[in-house]
Nucleic acid binder design. Structure first.
Length: 447
RNA sequence: GGGGGCGUAGCGAAGUCUGGUUAUCGCGCCGGCCUGUCAAGCCGGAGAUCGCGGGUUCAAUUCCCGUCGCUCCCGCCA
């Protein structure tokens, strides 16, 4: 070790370790180092105030004279502040730091295009501006929380299903053919072949149930090449998928989702109560989420809302109304719609024995928006081949999938939850794009 | 695939219908004052080829045509 390196090491040991803003109260009377972004500065004659924001909170730094001003500190500069922690009721958190030394680590070299600090909440921002300035817009503490909540949801999903015997899988997103006919696929140049981006992990998760894992889950991106431009659609989104074997029927799958939702709601209320508070919302779930058939739902719409549906399916307005009804009737923000007609569901959906025009399928609506589709799947080889033929699909094109059912397959079913949609609905956001960290829509592929 | 709305300063808007001074307001930005601010306050200042192209007119941000961009709704879906 050279003398030079040795000195540097000594210096580092002598340097105080950075502490987090949330822990400041534990250091009253002591000198500490904090680091973060300059949230705002306020000059008050010969006293200056500066708010410094790190990932855990915002701290007020007070300096006498022009200490803050003479360093030319701009909002959103990255600074390291050394000073004594003092108790003072005049500070919002009850503690503040009396500055003794400040280093500007990184200085903004451009004017800020948008506001980050508290003032931003009093200023309207177009969604386009929010997304064009994603890094800055996410620095805003309130907007920041959207993805803290999303992280919590992701953790809940993984934790819950792992705990219940599900194996986490990852399946390919570059595929040779689609699964659900209806939706459009993005094509990909794959060397000398044409390939597609997966619109769902559906076939793979069923295949892995058949591979003996019985219960699998996946958190993965899916791609929909539909030219839809609405506040609830994305062309790339994160699908929370599960598939489980040895079920009685689709109600086992709904039971599972219901139990997961209860777990999720409980966890969010304990771990993320602050986020709900910030968004002025609450979240609860009844012991039992009501289950009504699509047919019943249509009858309710006609009877109570004078709304006639053309087919046994709900349009977006119908979904909002039936949620309104469910809230009034059962006090539930959630409602399962079941027994969708076969024509409305993918080819692999299990038909009902007593009424083959209907399926063992369901949607879960949450506060007026569909957040889940699920159901029991066909597990009998001959029935599946028949189903493909009925849709004018050549079973031969799907050998790799259909063969799964040729060698012993248990009754099974599953579901998918749209991550951005559930995030959006929990927080009451206006547009699902706000719940996507870097959304991909009809026209946006950057940032 | 179909339908509606909007483009004015870094951000958010007014003005456009009914053409006519130097295009208005709030926030931000820059400078000054202020010893407890916290959406600070007060005073001063800079900043806009009114999305772009063409047409009508003595005169266009305003009217007409085209074009580009954004946004919302329906269909389809999570």
């Amino acid at each position: 070790m050279t003398f030079h390196v040795y000195l540097l090491r000594l210096l580092r040991i002598a340097m105080k370790k950075r502490i987090l803003v949330q822990d400041l109260a534990e250091y009253i009377g002591k000198e500490v180092v904090i680091a973060g972004w300059v949230h705002s500065t306020r000059k008050q004659g010969s006293v200056s105030f500066m708010l410094v924001r790190d990932r855990t909170g915002i701290a007020q730094v007070i300096a006498s004279g022009h200490d803050i001003n003479k360093q030319d500190v701009r909002n959103e500069a990255v600074v390291e502040v050394t000073g004594e922690v003092i108790e003072d009721t005049r500070a919002k958190t009850g503690v503040e730091i009396r500055l003794s030394k400040m280093t500007v680590i990184s200085r903004p070299v451009k004017k800020l295009p948008i506001l980050v600090n508290k003032k931003a909440s009093f200023q309207k921002l177009e969604l386009e501006t929010v997304l064009n300035n994603r890094v800055l817009s996410l620095r805003n503490p309130k907007r920041h929380l959207i993805f803290s909540l999303q992280s919590e949801i992701l953790d809940c999903f993984g934790t819950y299903f792992r705990k219940h015997g599900f194996t986490e899988i990852t399946t390919p997103k570059i595929i040779a053919s689609g699964t659900e006919g209806g939706t459009q696929l993005f094509s990909v140049d794959y060397f000398d072949k044409l390939a597609y981006l997966a619109q769902s992990p559906q076939f793979y998760k069923q295949m892995l149930v058949g591979a003996g894992y019985e219960r699998v889950f996946e958190i993965g991106h899916v791609y929909r090449a539909e030219i839809h431009n609405t506040s609830r659609h994305l062309n790339e989104y994160v699908s929370l998928d599960i598939e489980m074997g040895f079920i009685e029927d689709e109600h086992d799958v709904m039971d599972t989702e219901e139990d997961f939702i209860r777990y999720l709601v409980g966890r969010i209320n304990t771990h993320a109560a602050r986020i709900l508070e910030e968004y002025k919302t609450t979240l609860d779930v009844p012991d039992r989420i009501p289950r009504i058939t699509v047919k019943e739902a249509c009858a309710i719409l006609e009877r109570d809302y004078k709304k006639k549906m053309k087919t046994y399916d709900l349009d977006p307005v119908g979904e909002k109304l039936i949620c309104e009804w469910s809230k009034k009737q059962n006090g539930s923000d959630f409602v399962f719609l079941t027994d969708y007609p076969r024509s409305k569901r993918p080819v692999y959906t299990m038909p009902k024995k007593d009424d083959p025009d209907l399926t063992r399928s369901f949607d879960l609506l949450f506060r007026g928006l569909e957040i889940t589709t699920g159901g029991q799947r066909i597990h009998e080889y001959d029935m599946l081949i028949e189903a493909f033929k009925k849709r004018s699909l050549d079973p031969g094109d799907f050998d790799y999938y259909i063969d799964t059912f040729a060698y012993g397959m248990p009754p099974h079913g599953g579901l998918a939850i749209g991550l951005e949609r559930i995030t959006c609905q929990i927080l009451g956001l206006n547009n699902v794009r706000e719940a996507s960290i870097f959304p991909r829509d009809r026209s946006r592929i950057s940032p």
